[in-house]
Nucleic acid binder design. Structure first.
Lengths: 384, 384
DNA sequence: ATGGACGCCGAAAACGCTTTCGGCAATGCC
DNA sequence: GGCATTGCCGAAAGCGTTTTCGGCGTCCAT
C-alpha cells in the first residue's frame, strides 16, 4: 500500500503531511485547518497535482470527465490557489502598483477606483502607495516600496513636472505610465486634451462677447496646469484678444479665493477661466463678497466638471473630464506595455476629449458688447 | 571541486543555476538578468544563504563583521528579497486589504490614504478592491478577490447597515475592521462620535435661539446617518424642542438641493442641520434660489468639515471629523486584531470626537427670539 | 503489423526563501 | 580535566505551485 513517492495513502481524514518524508520529522508548521492545497484536491479527485494545475490554468489535454471531477473536488474542499507559490514559480506577482497623490481632489480619487476596477477585470491586483508631498524623496520611497512588493508595473497619478526624472529613475526596468499629466517624454501617459479644454472654455467666453478672459491657473509645476494656460492663451490670440497676466495658484478653493479678491477689485474683468472647479469656487466667493454679480457682471468657468459644481452659486459652467475613462485608459496603456516585455516601450499618449458643460455662471457681456472694441469678440475665429 | 550539494563553484560570473542537478537539465527559466538572489549575496559575502537570511531578519547570533560583509554584498548586488518566496514559507503575505466604496466623497478618500500611510509604517502592503455599488454581491466579490490575494486582514470603508451580514460572512476567519460606520456588532469599527457631533450642531443652532432644527439626513441604511439622526433628535428632545420629520437623502448635493427646495417653501424653518457638507451645499443653493437669505433668515450647518465648505456662500458652519485620524485608528484596530491571531477578537470601538467649526452660515434667529415660545431655546440643557 | 501523431496524464525538478537541526569553537563552571 | 553553556554558522527540508519531460494508450495512415 505504499505509493511510489513514499506517502501513505489517506487512511484517515488527512495524514500528517511530510511525516513520511526523509527523516520522519514531525510536521514543521501546523497547517491552517481551513486551507486545502492542490494535493488535497488531487487526492480527492483521484488524479495528480499537476492535472489539477492544468484544470485551473485552462490547459488543453484534460479529459472532460477528469476536469469535472477536479472541479467538483475543488468546490468540495473550497480550494483556493496559493498566490505566493504561484508567483514564486511564474515570477509574476499579478500585482500592479499605483502611486497616488494624497489629496482629497475629486479627480485622482475617481481615477484610482476606475483603475482598480479595470485592473481587476484584467486579473490584476492593485496595490497603492501614497505620497503626501510631491517631492523627489517621497516618490522614490513610494516606488521603492511598490518594487519591494514586486509589482509588474505601475501607474503614477498626478505627477508634477519636476518629478519626471525621479520617476524615470525609480521605475527603471519597470513598466510605468503616468496619468493626468505627462511629466516626461520617457514615460507614456494618459491624459485629457487640457489645451483643447482650455480653448473650449475660453472661446465660449469670447463668444459671449467678453473682450478678454482672465485665467486663474493651477500650480505652475504641473504639466496639466501649463497646458491649460497654453490653450487659454492660444484661444485668446486666435481671437485677437489681449492676454492678461496669468494668476497662479494651487488647485484649491483657498487659492481661488485669494486670486478672486484681486480680480474683484479690477472692474475691467468680466470673464474668468479657472483651472479647476475648486479654484472657481473660491473665485465665486470672492466675487460675491465684493458685490460683483455672477454671471451678470462677471462670468466664471471652471475645469473638471465635478458634481458639486452644479450646485455652486451660481451653478458652474465647467470643462468636464471623464476621470473614470482616464483611469481605464491609463490601465490600458500599462497593460499594453506589459504585453511587450523586453521590447522598447511604445510611447503612446492617450488624449481624451473634454466637454464643456454650460450652466449658469456664464452670460453675455454686460453692456451688450464688450468694453473693448478694437476686435469683434462676438465672432471668434474657430480655426481648427 | 564539486561541492557536497552538487553545485559547481562559481567558475565564471554566474554558472547556469541547477545545471548540475540531477538530470543535467538545462535551466528552465532564464533568470531576469538584473535580479540577484540570496545565494548570490551569500557567495559574494562568503557565507551561507541562511546567514544572509539571519542578517535580513535581524536575528541574533551573527558576528558583527559577518553582518557587515553581508550588508555590503547586498548593497553591491542591489539585492531585494523575493516576497513571494518569503510569503510561501512564512505563510504571511504582509498585505492588508481595503474594500473601498467607489465614490468621490471627501471622507473615504482621505481615510484610504491615511490607512495606507500607517500600514506602510507598520510594514504592510495595502491592496484595494473597490465596490461600485454597496450591494451584497459586490461586497462578497471584493472580499473574495482580496482573499485570493491572501491578505492578512482587511478594512471596509463605509459599509451600509445591510452589508453587515455579507461582510461578516465574507470575512469569516479573516481579521476585519470597519471604519466610519459600525455595521455590525460582530466586527470592530473605528468611527467618530456621530451622535455627539449631531448634538453639537443641533445645540449650536438651538443656542442661537432657533425654535427647532430641521434635519436633512444621509441614506437611511447607513449607520452613520442613523446615528446623526439620533443625536439630532436627542438634542432636540433634551431642549424640549419639537422634532420635525427627518428628510432623507443620499450624501450628495443633488439630494440636498431637492430637500432644500421643500425646506425653502416652508417659512417656519429657520435652522437646518445637514448630514454632510455636500447636502448642505445643495440646501444652500435651494435656499438662495428661493430668495431665502442665509444666515439672516435660515441657518445651515453641515457635517464633515471639508475644506471646500469654507468657501461656500456663505462659508459653512460644519462638524469637522478628522478622517486621517480615523483611518489611522482603524488600522490600529486591525493590527491589534492581527496580533492576537487565534484568540477571540477584541470587539473594540474607537470613538473619535468631532469638532464644531463655526463659520458664517449660522446666526441668531431673525426676530430676536424664536417663533415658538413654549420653550426657552436660548438656554438649552447641557445634560451630559 | 507498424510507425507516427495525438490525447491524456504523472514524476520530478525547480522557484527563493525560512526554519529546524546539528556542528564546532570558545568559554564558564564544578 | 570533563561537561554544560553560549555564540556563531551551515546543511537540508520544505512551503505549494508550475514546467518540463516522458510514458502510455488509441487511432489513422501506411
Amino acid at each position: 500500500m505504499i505509493e511510489k513517492n513514499g506517502r501513505v495513502p489517506a487512511g484517515g481524514a488527512r495524514p500528517a503531511r511530510s511525516a513520511a518524508s526523509r527523516g520522519g520529522r514531525a510536521e514543521v508548521l501546523a497547517r491552517r485547518p481551513g486551507r486545502s492545497i492542490m494535493r488535497d484536491v488531487a487526492e480527492l479527485a483521484g488524479v495528480s497535482a499537476q492535472t489539477v494545475s492544468r484544470v485551473i490554468n485552462g490547459h488543453p489535454y484534460v479529459a472532460t470527465d477528469t476536469r469535472q471531477r477536479v472541479l467538483a473536488a475543488m468546490r468540495a474542499l473550497d480550494y483556493q490557489r496559493n498566490p505566493a507559490a504561484r508567483a514564486l514559480v511564474t515570477r509574476r506577482s499579478g500585482t500592479l502598483g499605483i502611486v497616488g497623490y494624497e489629496s482629497p481632489l475629486y479627480g485622482p480619487t475617481s481615477m484610482l477606483y476606475a483603475i482598480e476596477g479595470a485592473a481587476r477585470a484584467a486579473g490584476y491586483f492593485v496595490s497603492v502607495a501614497s505620497v503626501r508631498h510631491l517631492d523627489r524623496r517621497s516618490v522614490l520611497d513610494a516606488v521603492e516600496w511598490l518594487r519591494r512588493q514586486s509589482v509588474e508595473g505601475l501607474i503614477a497619478i498626478a505627477p508634477k513636472t519636476s518629478m519626471a526624472s525621479a520617476l524615470a529613475q525609480a521605475t527603471a526596468g519597470l513598466a510605468c505610465v503616468t496619468v493626468g499629466g505627462g511629466c516626461s517624454d520617457a514615460i507614456p501617459s494618459a491624459q485629457i486634451d487640457n489645451a483643447g479644454g482650455a480653448r473650449l472654455a475660453t472661446r465660449h467666453l469670447l463668444d459671449l462677447g467678453h473682450a478678454t478672459v482672465h485665467h486663474v491657473a493651477g500650480p505652475s509645476d504641473w504639466p496639466e496646469a501649463g497646458e491649460r494656460v497654453y490653450g487659454w492663451r492660444d484661444a485668446l490670440q486666435a481671437a485677437g484678444a489681449p492676454t492678461p497676466p496669468v494668476l497662479p495658484g494651487d488647485w484649491s478653493a483657498d487659492a481661488g479665493y485669494e486670486q478672486g479678491k484681486a480680480l474683484a477689485r479690477d472692474r475691467s474683468v468680466t470673464a474668468v477661466f479657472c483651472a479647476s472647479d475648486q479654484l472657481a469656487l473660491g473665485v465665486l466667493r470672492a466675487l460675491h463678497e465684493a458685490g460683483r454679480r455672477v454671471p451678470d457682471e462677471v462670468s466664471v468657468v471652471g475645469f473638471d466638471g465635478t458634481p458639486d459644481g452644479g450646485h455652486y452659486l451660481p451653478p458652474l459652467t465647467s470643462v468636464r473630464q471623464d476621470f473614470a475613462e482616464l483611469g481605464r485608459s491609463s490601465l490600458g496603456l500599462l497593460l499594453s506595455q506589459l504585453d511587450r516585455v523586453g521590447d522598447t516601450p511604445i510611447l503612446r499618449r492617450d488624449l481624451l476629449l473634454p466637454e464643456l458643460v454650460i450652466r449658469s455662471s456664464t452670460a453675455p457681456v454686460p453692456g451688450g458688447d464688450g468694453p473693448a472694441e478694437e476686435v469683434t469678440p462676438a465672432s471668434p475665429t474657430p480655426r481648427d
